[in-house]
Design a protein around this nucleic acid. Structure first.
Lengths: 271, 271
DNA sequence: CAAATAGTGTCTCTAAGACAATATCAC
DNA sequence: GTGATATTGTCTTAGAGACACTATTTG
């Protein structure tokens, strides 16, 4: 009779055909820009990290950072490692988006991608933007529904502008899936992954799950509101935002002075 | 200068070490049992399909159905194929649970699992229960929080009872992750996957996303309510359930007669 | 003082939970 | 008729959105 030990000694895993597995990460950050009016609070934009591919395939296209899973790590560790290698900063949160396994999605062969969203607080990554690899850039994100099930994704960084037109295929359980109708300079099926990542990000921003990760530990409620508004592309009344967020924050004794208006109290996230 | 074509010809994907990828599926069904009292509606239990492992590793343990991804299919197609092979019925819905990639989770080597929840309407699978493979059985599910972050999972089928004690590790974005503290006859890390699957199922049942999939196309509102109550282990007032569900259903002209009480109107899901 | 944001109070409307009351059938 | 579920209506309370109003700062 065969024992478990015997079985495992005879078992050769390389008898079966296997795929390569990568983790691709959509990293988001909020970037503020000072406005002309000294009184006004800074405007802000949602931005996404892309890297320009130096080699084939999709040479000179823009892609999400990512890389192959190694035997000594989990897929989440792989995602965190890849994004840290690119930015030198560990992301503060990592959310699963989905598995992309369609045939032909990578011309190199049978390569499957697990996609994640990661978030960085403003400032942590600022100095890094575009120096090291010189091919990693933060792109301003625009993702808008046009008509029916069609969406337009536009990513811009200075004069560089890439993007795609996508159609929502199904939305079975709050999980949207997209089909690429047109594609401008985005590598692989990454336009699809970015659209899915944005859907995940927006859903999580709606119920205050992820907005804190875009800010430093202490923040004003206006900043927090601005994060939510920027991600979701909506605007809400300050009074109502304050009431809804009040359960999730703790007030401190510090204030954000020096603006051209009444100082704002700083808050912390309630654990 | 190298062209993309040249690059792809030289590229050999087998230069890199690769994992095996499997899809494991937690299939749920509601089973009714007639009560003694002829007037009373049937009681119901949530049940989960497990198969007894005939070979090593984990011989004689109970496991989720699943199998290796093939090159010509997506991971969702693989999950659907595996569960259809087991039940002879195509599942009506398939929801992602997560990727399980911890080292040592499978003694055969580097094997990563993508987990899914699938749902069957009552009746479709009834005749199948335990005849074909004779090692596939539907287990009644009990999953209860005991103290703090501890949960007890109990799966029972006649005299067979398996289960586990789990601790909730993190709940970062509504996505719960568990650690196995004790394990009774559940193969691999499948206790962990089942706990995560139940968390997903309960969240989706809360907002009426998945409850329809447990029933035939036409159903009474009481049946629908019973599905939600059974999955979430709660009880709600019929009047309130009716009001909340009304936007999601369309009434038909048919009635469910023959019970020992007033006939109930049949409804359909609103598309 | 003017302009901007910070912060509080209140009104209305909707949704949810609790509960009362009526309807209808099989035995 | 009795006992069960089916179905409708109403009361109360909590929360969301809209809006009015006050407070505080810098140039």
């Amino acid at each position: 009779m065969q024992s478990e030990k015997d079985f495992l000694q005879q078992y050769n895993i390389s008898d079966y055909e296997r795929p390569s597995l990568t983790a691709d990460v959509a990293s988001f950050m909020i970037r503020s820009q000072q406005l002309d009016n000294y009184r006004q609070n800074a405007g802000s934009r949602l931005s996404l990290l892309l890297i320009r591919r130096g080699g084939y395939p999709f040479k000179d296209y823009w892609a999400l950072p990512g890389g192959f899973l190694q035997p000594d790590e989990t897929i989440e560790q792989c995602a965190a490692r890849e994004i840290t290698e690119e930015t030198n900063v560990a992301p503060v949160s990592l959310m699963p988006v989905g598995i992309f396994s369609e045939q032909g999605r990578d011309p190199r062969g049978w390569i499957i991608s697990a996609a994640y969203v990661s978030v960085f607080p403003e400032g942590d990554v600022r100095q890094q933007a575009g120096d090291d690899a010189a091919d990693a850039r933060w792109f301003d994100v625009r993702f808008q529904q046009t008509s029916g099930k069609d969406y337009v994704l536009t990513l811009s960084c200075g004069e560089i502008s890439v993007g795609a037109v996508l159609e929502e295929e199904k939305k079975d359980f709050g999980i949207a899936s997209f089909r690429i109708k047109e594609n401008r300079s985005i590598a692989f099926d990454h336009a699809k992954i970015i659209a899915a990542a944005l859907t995940v990000l927006r859903r999580r921003a709606k119920n205050f799950e992820v907005i804190f990760d875009f800010l430093p530990p202490k923040f004003t409620l206006s900043q927090l509101q601005r994060v939510q508004e920027t991600i979701m592309d909506i605007s809400v009344l300050p009074a109502n935002f304050r009431r809804k967020i009040s359960d999730y924050v703790i007030e401190t004794d510090e204030y954000d002075r020096g603006a051209g208006h009444r100082p704002a109290r700083l808050y912390q996230r309630r654990p």
